[in-house]
């Protein structure tokens, strides 16, 4: 009988066996077990069509988007250790993130990652369209995907304000002023005039949608806090739920699309 290698010895320990409940995935039974028995890998089917595995077909853009989302979550949590969302501290904390912290590229990874995620999510949509993968039975999941795309843009947009520099507040000023022009709901939009009784203005800059977004009449400290919460808690939670729905439906709607 041949001498057992170190790897085999490790595999026989109680600790290893308690974590991985099957042998190495070199035969059919174990390959099924590794995918089905692992909470992270069981997003995947155990077997799938060869066309759906090829990079030339999938471009892996959806997967990459999800990966970047995870990377952004990790770097974002790290950034939150140092960042205070107040007009007094925000800008200085951003500088501190670069100067006072070892490995001062965390903010860079977060920011470039956010841009990269926008690009990958667009390309993912492009690929899904070009392969007709929105066609029945995947119509609903395409809709979920579109909403996820919008939320990705909103995540990126709300995060844009947080450095509290000139680039940030003017980009948000331009963006949030569009909300002002929302028909009927914004005080600068069509229809707001109709909701006026004599001198009493029903839709004004103190109660329209932009006020709700900014918690004020212009981009100030309450807006910073509001965007911070939206960016760090609210939208990521919604995105997390929708990602779960999106992945679930990919599996339930017949996996990665392939010719019928």
């Amino acid at each position: 009988m041949a001498e057992k290698g170190l790897a085999d010895k490790v595999r026989e320990t109680q600790i290893w066996k308690s974590i991985f409940r099957h042998g190495p995935p070199d035969n059919a039974r174990n390959r099924a077990a590794v995918v089905a028995g692992n909470v992270f890998l069981h997003l995947h089917p155990i077997k799938l069509k060869k066309s759906g595995v090829k990079l030339g077909y999938t471009w892996c853009m959806g997967g990459l988007t999800f990966f970047i989302f995870l990377a952004l979550t990790v770097t974002g949590v790290l950034l939150m250790f140092y960042y205070r969302p107040t007009a007094e501290y925000a800008f200085n904390d951003i500088i501190a993130l670069r100067e006072h912290v070892p490995l001062g590229i965390m903010r860079e990874i977060h920011r470039w990652g956010a841009h990269a995620m926008v690009i990958t999510v667009w390309l993912h949509m492009f690929r899904v369209f070009m392969t007709g993968s929105y066609k029945p039975p995947r119509e609903f999941n395409w809709g979920v995907g579109v909403i996820l795309l919008v939320l990705t843009l909103l995540l990126s947009f709300t995060g844009y304000l947080l450095p509290w520099d000139q680039l940030a507040i003017w980009a948000i000023a331009v963006g949030s002023n569009m909300a002002k022009a929302t028909p009927f709901l914004g005080h600068g939009g069509p229809g707001a005039m109709l909701a006026q009784i004599g001198d009493f203005v029903m839709v004004s800059d103190k109660n329209d949608v932009r006020f709700q977004l900014l918690a004020g009449r212009f981009v100030g400290e309450p807006a910073l806090l509001r965007f911070y919460i939206l960016h760090c808690v609210f939208i990521p939670l919604v995105v997390g739920v929708l990602i779960a729905v999106h992945f679930w439906r990919v599996r339930k709607d017949g996996g990665i699309s392939a010719p019928l």
């Binding site: 995935p25 059919a28 390959r31 099924a32 590794v34 995918v35 890998l41 995947h44 089917p45 155990i46 077997k47 799938l48 069509k49 060869k50 066309s51 595995v53 090829k54 990079l55 077909y57 892996c60 997967g63 990459l64 990966f67 392939a258 010719p259």
Partner: peptide, 23 residues
């Protein structure tokens, strides 16, 4: 994509998992 060899089913491990790891 409709060629018989592309319609064939393959194991997720290692075919897809390794691609993902590489990406």
């Amino acid at each position: 994509e409709a060629l018989p060899e592309n319609r064939e089913k393959v194991w997720c491990w290692p075919n897809l998992v390794y691609t993902e790891l590489f990406t």
